[in-house]
Design a protein around this nucleic acid. Sequence first.
DNA 1: CTTGACGTGAACAGATCTGTTCACTTAACC
DNA 2: GGTTAAGTGAACAGATCTGTTCACGTCAAG
Lengths: 185, 185
Amino acid sequence: MQIRKQHLVDTAYRLFNEHGYHATGIDRILAESGVSKATLYKHFRSKDDLVIAVLRQRHEQLIQAIGKAVEQARESGRSPGLAIFDVLDEWFRGDHFFGCNFINASAEYAEEGNAIHRLAAEHKAAMQDLIEHGLVEIPNRRQRQLMAKQFSLLVDGAIVRAHTRGDRDAAQLAKKLAAQMLCQR
Amino acid sequence: MQIRKQHLVDTAYRLFNEHGYHATGIDRILAESGVSKATLYKHFRSKDDLVIAVLRQRHEQLIQAIGKAVEQARESGRSPGLAIFDVLDEWFRGDHFFGCNFINASAEYAEEGNAIHRLAAEHKAAMQDLIEHGLVEIPNRRQRQLMAKQFSLLVDGAIVRAHTRGDRDAAQLAKKLAAQMLCQR
DNA sequence: CTTGACGTGAACAGATCTGTTCACTTAACC
DNA sequence: GGTTAAGTGAACAGATCTGTTCACGTCAAG
């Protein structure tokens, strides 16, 4: 991707996180990225198009980060099914945590049919698949799918709790619950 | 409360739900409620003030509805701790479900110090207290508090799942998990 | 009958929003 | 040296945003 285009996406990503999607105007993204308006509209057809590009990039980042954590857990003998909660924990404690881009976008673009709303749904479905893939410890397929759904719900719950309430320990709370589910089975 | 003021809050509540907070302009609220702009600014100092009034009303509604459900569960011998998930289930299956106003507002007014963001945090804290109060089945106080935290996380996870993915069964998924937690203890 | 609370409608201010257009520059490449 | 792609800066359009102001209605209570 071209330098300017990438720069726009990165700046937009930061501003969307810090202030929300509608509250962040094109002009501010341009000012802070130092890119001209004509260039933006050469790369993106609309602001929504830029939002989608930001979300796509974030999606790739997350899939990669979680996939890697699962892999590392497996290699070091820790539970791969619980690895995602350690990723969350690190995320929540970082300086730049503003909740999940997809949950936030879903809230702002509330209509079910909206392209951005649908993108968020697809992301969450992909996350659930990734979680299911990490639950190698469970041999039974139906049981694994059910637990992946529940873990995915725990992940979203932890993110929302961390964001709305500023509870940095939300990941550990969810992890404890998830661990009990795994043991108990 | 005056008729006009109440009408404004009700209309704003509906539009904020359907389209989000920033995406809903004052003019639209006025047009659909049939109230004049001067009246709005007589009752509310700003749009944010109207948002806050909407959220306060919703807060009262929810506290009352859940309190009632817990009470009824207790009377009819069902588990009061799980009653909240039945409230969620009914909510998710209704025609007018657009996620949690507070989670959505928290996303749009992302800054931690923002008054609306803080209001959402307070609401979630109150919900957790209500949940804890419903967990009469658990005698140990520390254990009850921990489980209230976890149940609160499950509630938020279910709401987000239902909203972003359109999964109407999210409440049952969370309830199943919660029930296991209660049994296992 | 007057007062005061409540409300209307419309104009206005001033900012900000997304998106378009165009003449000009820069720099790499054949 | 000429071509081409990428970008700039600035003006512009037209809509929409929040918020203010003011002259004018309506109506119930004292």
